[in-house]
Design a protein around this nucleic acid. Structure first.
Lengths: 119, 119
DNA sequence: ACACCGCTTTCACACGCCCTTCACCGCCGG
DNA sequence: CCGGCGGTGAAGGGCGTGTGAAAGCGGTGT
């Protein structure tokens, strides 16, 4: 890679991920993510628009081979979704491809719910 | 980086199928297909322009011999047609050859679904 | 050493998608 | 009119995924 000293910045709609700075920004506001959550996010964001299998995700994020039956990836996808939705309710980022894995890309959320706007 | 060496890409009009990535794109937008739907689409797309018998399709997509009377292929052709038409209403991809099987190729649909300055 | 605390992993269960099969339809040729 | 063929919708069951909570692990401060 020749891009050299350029800080890698991954953008997806209102979301910005900066692997080098260990930071993720939603509309400019920083998200609070654990290390593992961050690794999973980066793995997904770097393969934006493509379908990633769980095993591949595990190897990239955990640096180890996934044991059959391990649900860790699912759990962290869930945690990430929760935080992303809390920060950007109208957007969906992690999409399930049943039988294959997950795909990352920013898409407007299907239905939208607003916490306490309604009353 | 990642060399996209074997990246097989099948194109038919506005449709793009990428077997290696478990992805199908309609005008660049990803389709959500189940595993079986995907397999059938790939089988058809790889034999583009040729007529495929149901038995042959079944063996290629299911990896097994088709039992006489099995309608699975018909059902999945139907499911695929539905999703393809939803994504690309003006195109027809899967064509029936009565007594033989199906043929895949992109052709403009002769019926019309979009009211506009048409015709 | 102990208590506290956040993070990770595992577990159990709920739920929804998916695959298969079946029934019924209309069409066409004999 | 009857039988073969393909289109289509729906039911049943299986299993892949979503999800909350408990258990395990390390680190930090007192």
């Amino acid at each position: 890679m020749e891009a050299a000293r350029n800080a890698e910045i991954l953008r997806a709609g209102p979301l910005e991920v900066r692997p080098d700075e260990h930071m993720a920004l939603a509309d400019g506001r920083p998200l609070t993510l654990s290390r593992r959550e961050f690794d999973v996010l980066i793995v997904l964001a770097r393969r934006m628009g493509r379908v990633l299998g769980r095993e591949q995700m595990f190897e990239l994020a955990w640096g180890d081979r996934m044991r059959p039956g391990d649900r860790s990836v699912d759990v962290y996808v869930h945690k990430l979704r929760a935080k992303l939705e809390a920060a950007l309710p109208q957007w969906a980022f992690i999409h399930t491809h049943v039988g294959f894995g997950y795909r990352f890309s920013s898409e407007p959320s299907h239905g939208f719910h607003i916490p306490s706007t309604n009353r």
